[in-house]
């Protein structure tokens, strides 16, 4: 579904994304995993040309993304921003319905789509539709952001740390919701995170990025069983180490 070939981004000669190549199959969820500043956001934004690549090709559904104008391309690709970015002068419903309205959908169709999506991200439509973004909690804003990304029925969804800065319970809630939604809509998803557990939980496959390059790409099982190098092995060990600490704390508490 998505083919990335030799994707490169340079800022003033500094290479930020370095000759990256990977594919995402139809209906697959690929996680881009890596530390802060390794180029995850830059890679994601080059897929829908929010950032123009310095070199390389991106094809979606076999078609070079440069054949379309930027706005045309982006209306067909849902994007959830790291900082959400809801429009403060529009209601929740208008935010969610913005891409459909750009596509010229009828008001009726937009309205029913908005209600459907609010329900999908578990926000009661009647209660949330007419609210201003400023009247939402952080978690509610992120859910509206995901609903907005999904509004125009895109085949491809790009999500940049959509569950950052959330309490663990809400986070768990939304992760479960995403698993359900992508199955229901058979979406192709690229999901950026720096959280190892989230990557294991959601990803069909995981691409580990380091300094703008690909350290390893594989299923969670492959990464756990045969890490490509020390760094990946260490990364893969963190959930287990955390689980171990939690286990011993529980044992102490019981004993």
């Amino acid at each position: 579904m998505i083919e990335v070939e030799g994707l490169t981004k340079r800022y003033d000669g500094r290479v930020v994304v370095d000759d990256l190549s990977f594919e995402v199959g139809a209906g697959e969820l690929l996680v881009l995993l890596g530390g802060s500043g390794c180029g995850k956001t830059t890679t994601l934004k080059m897929i829908n040309r929010l950032i123009e690549p310095s070199a390389g090709v991106v094809r979606i559904g076999g078609r070079d993304t440069r054949e379309l104008s930027g706005p045309e391309l982006r209306r067909g690709v849902g994007y959830g921003f790291q900082q959400v970015g809801l429009f403060p002068h529009m209601s929740v419903a208008e935010n969610v319905g913005v891409t459909p309205s750009l596509l010229g959908w009828s008001p009726d169709r937009i309205r029913s789509r908005v209600d459907q999506l609010l329900a999908l991200v578990q926000l009661e439509p009647a209660a949330f539709r007419d609210r201003a973004p400023s009247a939402l909690s952080g978690g509610e804003q992120q859910r509206v952001g995901i609903a907005r990304a999904l509004a125009a029925e895109p085949g491809v969804l790009l999500l940049d740390e959509p569950f950052g800065a959330l309490d663990p319970l809400t986070r768990d809630h939304l992760q479960q919701a995403l698993i359900r939604i992508r199955r229901e809509l058979s979406l192709t998803v690229v999901f950026v995170t720096h959280d190892m557990v989230e990557a294991l939980l959601l990803g069909d496959r995981i691409a580990v990025l380091r300094d703008g390059g690909l350290a390893q790409l594989g299923t969670p099982g492959e990464l756990l069983q045969s890490p490509a190098d020390e760094g990946v092995a260490e990364l893969m060990a963190t959930p287990r180490r955390h689980a171990g600490i939690v286990d011993s704390l529980l044992a102490d508490a019981d004993g």
């Binding site: 706005p71 982006r74 209306r75 994007y79 921003f81 970015g85 429009f87 913005v98 750009l102 907005r148």
Partner: peptide
């Protein structure tokens, strides 16, 4: 700037971004 990028991200053209986001704000 995040809202400008969001406007581009949801598929607005420069003109739509001006009329629907920048001018109202």
């Amino acid at each position: 700037a995040a809202l400008i990028e969001a406007a581009r991200g949801v598929g607005m053209t420069d003109r739509q971004r001006l009329l629907r986001v920048e001018l109202p704000l």
